[in-house]
Amino acid sequence: MSELQIRDVHKKYGVLEVIHSISLDVADGEFIALVGPSGCGKSTLLRLIAGLEEITSGEISIGGRAVNRLAPKQRDIAMVFQTYALYPHMNVEDNMSFSLRLAKVGEKERQERVGKAAEILGLQPYLKRYPRQLSGGQRQRVAMGRAIVRDPAIYLFDEPLSNLDSKLRVAMRSEIKENHQRLKTTTVYVTHDQIEAMTMADRIVVLNGGRIEQVGAPLDLYDKPDNLFVASFIGSPAMNFIEGTIRGGDFLAADGTAIPVGFSLPGDGRPLQLGIRPEHLRLSAEGIALYVRTIEPTGAETLIHGTLAGVPVAAIFRERIAAQPGQSITVSLDVDKTHLFDAATSMRI
């Protein structure tokens, strides 16, 4: 039983409040990703859970036990750091068994646990090597191994893949996910990379300015973002937004373009933001003009940056498009894939 509960947690540095009343429940065995732009408080929240920082008010409990005043070592957690934080003067085996030696675990059991973790991570040939003799990916594995041997209640990951090149990052991503499926240990994973969060997590927590914007399964966040922030943060290239109002059954953009969206909302005239993801624009013989600025063919699809209804947009098509920059094409919107937000409150309608 190792669920994590965060209740109304605040964190202040002097007068500066960086975490504003965050509450979150993480179920036993769940993989949670904390995402958000830099400075949103995701790393701080992780460090509060780890006990590396003290919370100002609220309560954090792990496995039903309040840990507010407990030191990291008493919290039964393991953490993987962005820089790996491997002890440079210890070889791989000693790095992995350090916590066990501190806990006075017998030598036989130590070797057993390190051996098992090394086997899972494919580190057996490297046990006697020092961190400086390892590649980036191997160091990353040792950092994970150090967490695995602990068999903790919760794993905490602080942007563990951000120091790797893109190819290795994809490989390690699936490795971490695989390990989680095997070990089923509650995991809190901080990243600024929303693709990482989407592909790995059971649920994603989007943070902004020290507050939770939305919590949900990856595809739920993608399909039904609660507000403008989440809508623009999740998805790459980002969702397009068009300002305007509802007039009759159409969306009337700020520049006067009428966009058929098929809503029957009361046209009370309040300012709205219409959101549409790049892949939900379609080529159609008649529709709205999309003025093409640049074309980026990737083979599988074609990415167009251009102007639609007076605002810059990105559009992705499965078709190959012959148009040249400077020309216009006509597109229509996938009506059931549009999102409407209140421009004043930025909440979803």
């Binding site: 039983m1 409990s61 496995g63 039903g64 036990r65 309040a66 507010n68 005043r69 039964d76």
Partner: peptide, 12 residues
């Protein structure tokens, strides 16, 4: 686990 609960109770 038990000692954990015990500690928690004491904390409160």
């Amino acid at each position: 686990e038990h000692s954990g609960q015990f500690l928690y109770a004491d904390l409160v």
